Each structure stands twice: as C-alpha cells, then as structure tokens.
Amino acid sequence: MAIINLSLLLPILLLALSLSVVFAVDPSTLQDFCVTAPISQGTSICKDPKLVEANDFFFSGLHLAGNTSNPVGSKVTPVFASQLPGLNTLGISLARIDIAPWGVNPPHLHPRATEILTVLEGTLEVGFITSNPENRHFTKNLQKGDVFVFPIGLIHYQRNIGYDNVVAIAALSSQNPGVITIGNAVFGATPVISSGVLVKAFQLDRTVINYLQSKF
C-alpha cells in the first residue's frame, strides 16, 4: 500500500485552493490600467498607455431615466467594460435600473458577478433563489436608501410594488458580469429548445409551451 506523504500533500492542496480562487475572479493586471476596445472579457490587447485619455475612464448618462414602456416595465442601463473601456481588468461595473409602477426586472442571473443593489427612489420587492435541492427563496421589500445583495450565479429579480417609479443602482463584481434572463433563455433560445423537452421539464401542455415560445 502506498504511503501518502502529508508534508508533500499539504502544499499541493494549498496550491490548488489558491488557483481556484484566482480563476474565480476577473483577470488582474500588472500595470495601472488596461484600456481596450473592443472588450473581450479582459483578453484584448491593451491600448498604448501614452494614447489613453480621461474619456477612457468616463461615462455620462446615468442621470437619464430608462425607457420602461415595454412589456415588463423596466429598463437596465449598464456601465460595463463595453460601455466604459477603463473598467477593463478592474473587476467592477455598475448599472442603473428603472422600473415603472408594478413593473419587474424579470428573473435572471449573472454568471460572473455578485450584485449589490441600492434603492435611490421608490419601493422595491427583491428576491433570489438558492441552488438545488433547497431552492430556498429569500425576499425583502426595500425602501429608499436600502441595500440588498444577490450572490453570484443565483436567479434573482426585482419588482416595483409602489405607485412611483423605482430607481436603483447595482454594483457588480465583474467588468463583464453577463446576464441570463430565464424566460428569454428557455423559451426564446435560437434555435428553439424542443417543445417535447419543455413539456417534460415544466409539466405543461404542448400548446402552452408553444404559446410561451411565441411570446419570446
């Protein structure tokens, strides 16, 4: 029987743990900044620092209300690295969220970021769901000045439960957090997911599945 040398095993385990932590966040930089265009998740070639200017670190427009005249009654205005090149490799971004009375920011997830949300105006219901098998639902009603956090990769949503417009600012722990809106992804995939798969998955009649696919 082989004998495991614990003195050798411990450094290997520590190295593996450190690597898992490193790869769990956005890539770091060995210089002050890495302004790029276009953005490709931090892998683009950096712009010559001598050609970088203040506008590369500047974005204007979050004072403008988003257009919520759509079926869900909400609008997200992102400030990711694709809108603000100076964010590249810095591992942060933000967004403005506007929600009309009784509108929703539909259930979605960010595969690469935790989100922390601050309500600036209005009354907001928020919630997120934990992973299988618990699928525990955490929900809270927020007022102006309240803060709520959505852990990375978990489905979450926001709903305006008041009679005034909601304005919120979300900060995210990635320059390119990504977003997967559940309804769009499941019922609006291209090419479409077979209705037979969705009938089994959701235990719904095929006509209902076909209707949902037509809506997305």
Rank of each mutant, 00 (worst) to 15 (best):
G73R: 10
N55P: 03
D56W: 00
S69C: 08
S44A: 07
Q31I: 14
F58Y: 03
A37K: 06
S60I: 09
T43L: 12
P71M: 09
N67K: 01
L51W: 00
N67E: 04
A37S: 15
E53V: 07
C34F: 00
P38T: 08
G61I: 00
F33T: 10
P38Y: 04
E53Y: 06
S69I: 12
L30G: 11
S60D: 14
V35E: 00
N55L: 09
G73Q: 07
G42Q: 01
P38Q: 03
D48V: 05
T68I: 03
Q41V: 08
K47W: 09
A65E: 08
Q31M: 07
S40T: 09
G73V: 00
G42H: 02
D56C: 08
Q41C: 09
A65W: 01
D56K: 01
G42T: 02
F57E: 06
I45T: 15
F58N: 15
F59S: 07
V72E: 10
V52A: 15
K50V: 13
Q41F: 11
A37H: 07
L30T: 14
S74E: 09
C34P: 01
G73F: 05
G61S: 03
L62R: 13
V35G: 07
E53K: 15
F59D: 01
G42S: 04
F58A: 13
N55W: 00
S74T: 13
A37F: 04
L62V: 04
C34T: 01
D32S: 15
F59N: 10
V72T: 15
T43M: 09
G42F: 03
E53M: 01
S74I: 11
A54K: 12
P71I: 13
C34I: 07
I45K: 11
G61L: 06
G61F: 03
N55F: 11
K47Q: 06
K50T: 12
A37V: 08
A54H: 06
P38A: 01
L62T: 02
L64G: 10
L51D: 11
L62F: 05
F57K: 11
C34Q: 01
F59C: 09
G61H: 01
T36L: 02
Q41D: 14
G42M: 04
D32G: 12
D32Y: 14
T43H: 10
I39F: 07
P71H: 11
K50R: 13
F33W: 14
S44Q: 10
I45Y: 05
K47H: 06
P38I: 01
P49A: 08
V35S: 03
S69V: 12
G66E: 11
K50A: 12
S60G: 15
E53H: 14
G73A: 02
K47P: 13
F57T: 05
P49G: 00
G42R: 04
V72Y: 03
A65S: 15
P49V: 05
S74R: 08
S40M: 14
N55V: 13
F33P: 14
Q31S: 14
L30I: 08
G66V: 05
